[in-house]
Design a binder for these strands. Sequence first.
DNA 1: TTGAAAGCGCTAACAA
DNA 2: TTGTTAGCGCTTTCAA
Lengths: 342, 342
Amino acid sequence: MGETGETGSSSTRPTIYDVARVAGVAPSTVSRAFSRPGRVNADTADRIRRVAHELGYRTSPIGRGLPDGRTALLAIVVADLTNPFFFEIIRSAEKTAIDSGYTLLVVDAHESRGAERLALERTLPLVEGVVLATSRLSDAAIRAVAKQRPTVVMNRVVTDVPSVVTDNAQGMRRAVEHLAGLGHTRLSYLAGPEASWADGMRWRAFREATQELGLRARRLGPFAPTLAGGLSAAQALTTHTATATVAYNDLVAIGTMRGLTRLGVEVPRDLSVVGFDNIFGSDFCTPPLTTVASPLRHFGTFAVQRLLNQLRAPSAAPSTGLSAPALLPAKLVERGSTARRA
Amino acid sequence: MGETGETGSSSTRPTIYDVARVAGVAPSTVSRAFSRPGRVNADTADRIRRVAHELGYRTSPIGRGLPDGRTALLAIVVADLTNPFFFEIIRSAEKTAIDSGYTLLVVDAHESRGAERLALERTLPLVEGVVLATSRLSDAAIRAVAKQRPTVVMNRVVTDVPSVVTDNAQGMRRAVEHLAGLGHTRLSYLAGPEASWADGMRWRAFREATQELGLRARRLGPFAPTLAGGLSAAQALTTHTATATVAYNDLVAIGTMRGLTRLGVEVPRDLSVVGFDNIFGSDFCTPPLTTVASPLRHFGTFAVQRLLNQLRAPSAAPSTGLSAPALLPAKLVERGSTARRA
DNA sequence: TTGAAAGCGCTAACAA
DNA sequence: TTGTTAGCGCTTTCAA
């Protein structure tokens, strides 16, 4: 009853050979008809396309990829797909990729170095380039990746590998100044994953900014960069005297606020909270979160563009000026989670 | 200065041939050493592995995939990656895949039929199976996909294609009963995308449930299944007399609540709002959203398991009982966005 | 403009 | 246990 083609083996997809046979041309002509139209007679090409369509032929990237490795595929590896931080990034990265004729594969590393390595091992050979968004890999491992495929890292600086990063220092300074301006003198920082490059930068900037302004600074954690991590942070906060806190990211900040509410601590009356990233949800949580905003949308676009540059200019040696990190500005979005010190 | 190996071409990655030459064995032996350890002398295998490591050799899935199509890759195509609805689904799907030795590729269709088709075209040949989560493709197109690769669809029923769906009817009934119990008699439904199968099911169930309970039912929309869509919905709601509304999904519901707030309509005092899906954020928005919850976590697991079943039992004809849709229960989570009619 | 033939990296029969 | 050989689907010289 099924609509099986006339070709013998029904289970296997048609190839250029099938098309060639039916169309009465050589396989190479079929190949050309698809890979470089124009290099083949219009009529012939027409016939080939018609036959191909009838047979349900599709060119196979895997076969096509073998000779030259061109698969028109890029990959972005994110630390945690469920972190809204990546939304805009992935979106914009995808758009940029598509506009240039590439398809973007999204790979989730589950905040795990092992998972990230495994996923890369499997994916890397399939793609022409890769964006590592907030990777948990070691610098050496990242350089190894970069040796296999054009690579761009995000939110991290690795020698000789092109990168796109937020200006964490600037953002953190704005946050601390904001809190200082509200009269807070004892601040705490809720640390993120130890393996996070961004966490290191943020904590350092926090320490420096507080120092310069003569404020007391304290580091709590590390906490998981999730709502749950924020819940633990809330617990930890109650045993400290800080009147304002800056969280590693918005997820932690939101989790912290929820935890504090449960513990009877009111935000911002009893404690001011600042997040990082301005993610989806940070404006409709209660209270709306004051946070350091990165231009998330540009992030993905920038990263993919740098990747495309590498793809187009394979001549350029790895350690060209190309790899100087692109610094994206950060600004403070003031909302309801911060207030004058009681 | 660079640490280039002794092999001539530095730009190209080593192959089994390189390893074979250095190790003094045949290429096929190298292949065996990796693809089926045990079928080769332990010492030989050891030597091969050592050489391979030194040379930086990695087996290429693309080469490996050619002969038999086995890439250990699965794909999940989602309508919109930034929709929190997919978080748990992707997470659990990934876990299930990894546990079975597969890597899961995540592909975003951007709520666009064209994008979905293009992405599938490129991805399908690379993967061994695919999960279509809330696809916007036509039934015919989905069947065509299923012909190329083992396929499981989610939140949709397509003849002859295995699927996993929420019990929309049951969930909607619960929602309507809940509202009726609160004294509401005039309800509205905020419709989602026309191409959405789930939207069709939900609207139908809404109409039936309201009818049976003798309530007035009205359909507004369609709206984009996003926060922005909800904002438009809020506008539309103000011109109607319903005192309670059920949204196509949580995103629309949350957007609606925000829009209503801006318009001076208070939820739930002036209007009760119910969502669908119980996504990330639905518990910390203001007010917390009453919503129909699907067992998101089981969703991904189920889907991938069905896929794996197909992969393991290639003998079973497509239209076996295997393709009967798996119905996952839905329950109502009552929170603050619904209240007794004023 | 088209065809013939070689080869991409790997696996799988078949022999040795 | 290992080597030889053919071939997966496609692209790409090289000739015609």
